[in-house]
């Protein structure tokens, strides 16, 4: 499958293109010039110590946080800003929504809507954004819940689901609008260890179906097996990037070596 992805590189432009991205929260410089390209059907995993700016990068790539410098292109369309003579001005909500509409996002804490059933969560955007009728929306909704193995939980509220089931519902919700690329921000970090597997399995299936994915994760096993490219971030910079083998077997920088050592010692 990684070969497929590489042949994709030759043809089209990247689905996600990040150029020279900077982000500051007040005085703290959180992202210090990030470049990233994600090709169609490629899976990019972002790893790095906590506080290194992984979530911020993903949030800027979705324009949930506005970035200060640089560009984010989603399928060749600039996200968040309009550019005139090199000057960036904030884009309208409508245009931002339109560029964003091909991104599906999955959060660490699921962010399900607790007052709706699992099915209600999945169909909400279909009904409100796509303006589908109830039956059609529920038909698609059940299909999506089936994809994540939750057909039998469709009519339960999130409070009655396990963490793993909630996260799978959140994945189904993001898939319902048929995104071209999926962003995952530590999707298994809030889960009890025994529930991690079921979520990773769903993600792995998505990857094998050719979904383009950007995954911030601490699951090194997942990154090693599923990623086409692994990006190591530290202190707001991309320190190293390469194939899983390069990153996990032949780390070049001290910072990455140190990070992997800490991780291994904790994993034992």
């Amino acid at each position: 499958m990684s070969e497929e992805a590489e042949s994709g590189t030759m043809e089209g432009k990247p689905v996600v293109l990040v150029e020279g991205l900077h982000k500051r929260f007040g005085a703290t410089h959180v992202l210090k010039g990030i470049d990233l390209a994600v090709e169609k059907s490629q899976v990019v995993c972002v790893i790095g110590p906590s506080g290194s700016g992984k979530s911020t990068l993903l949030r800027c790539m979705a324009f949930l946080d506005r970035y200060d410098e640089g560009r984010v292109f989603i399928e060749n369309r600039l996200l968040g800003y309009r550019e005139t003579d090199g000057e960036l001005t904030r884009d309208s909500e409508r245009n931002i929504d339109s560029v964003r509409s091909v991104i599906g996002m999955v959060f660490q804490h699921y962010n399900l809507w607790p007052h709706m059933t699992a099915l209600g969560n999945v169909t909400e955007a279909l009904r409100v954004v796509r303006k589908l009728g109830r039956r059609e929306a529920e038909h698609i909704g059940m299909e999506m819940l089936g994809k994540v193995g939750l057909n039998d939980k469709a009519h339960d509220h999130p409070a009655r689901l396990s963490g793993g089931q909630q996260q799978r519902t959140a994945i189904a919700r993001a898939l319902a609008i048929r995104p071209h690329v999926m962003f995952f921000d530590e999707p298994t970090s809030a889960l009890d260890p025994e529930l991690v597997g079921e979520v990773l399995q769903v993600m792995q299936e998505l990857a094998s179906e050719g979904m383009t994915m950007v995954v911030v994760t601490h699951e090194m096993g997942f990154a090693a097996h599923v990623a086409d490219e692994v990006v190591f971030m530290d202190d707001g910079e991309v320190v190293e990037r390469g194939s899983p083998d390069d990153i996990f077997k032949r780390p070049r920088s001290d910072r990455l070596r140190e990070f992997l050592d800490t991780w291994r010692s904790r994993a034992i």
Binding site: L64, I103, L112, E124, A125, I177
Partner: peptide, 18 residues
């Protein structure tokens, strides 16, 4: 209401009034 719920809705393109 946790802000994450609103972010999830915005990512799905759900308009503010909704």
């Amino acid at each position: 209401i946790p802000p994450g719920q609103i972010e999830a809705a915005r990512m799905l393109g759900i308009p503010r009034p909704a």
